[in-house]
Amino acid sequence: MVEPVPSTRFTLGNNRAERVSILGIAPGRQFVFRGPREVADQCGAAFGVDLPASPCRANRQDGRAALRLGPDEWLLIALPDDAVLASLRHSLSRFAHALVDVSSSDAVFEIRGPSTALLLNAAIPLDLSPKTFPVDACTRTILAKVGVLLWRTEQECFRLQVARSFAAYVHDVLAEAAWGLPDA
């Protein structure tokens, strides 16, 4: 699989790089699952990761993750060579649901460092304090003028997905904002 954008493009070339880095990473295999809660449980069993029941939460296990995007919508993420997603369709064939391969839709950034939340808050109006947006919180939201999917994977690391045609814009907004990072 070809990466949507070369990673090198997303390393900050200024002295703030120590406090935050923006890196383009491979999206892996991604499927959207939509369906009723009972089928979501079946899906979780077959996928090996429970599909979260609480809003805006992600579950993770062994390189796989399930992010709840809405009451009947989850994003399933696996490593590029993981065959589990391809076999899901078969496992769920008896149930009413939607399972759609979106592996190529988004560009994915990993934003890491002590100032990550501050940097994102230059363009994202959500409260990203660990109290309200802890590790494994995830949500769709707005960054500057585009919709993104935000997932806090560690205390100081966020995974940010955006439809691939917006990748350059999102990168450039964050790189511009990095110049103005306030003191942490």
């Binding site: 809003p55 809405g70 109006p125 949500t139 769709r140 939201t141 707005i142």
Partner: peptide, 18 residues
């Protein structure tokens, strides 16, 4: 910018998301 509580996400969110 208004804050609007989404009854599905169960949190108050910024108006631009709506």
């Amino acid at each position: 910018m208004l804050l609007i509580r989404c009854p599905y996400c169960e949190t108050a969110r910024p108006e631009v998301e709506f």
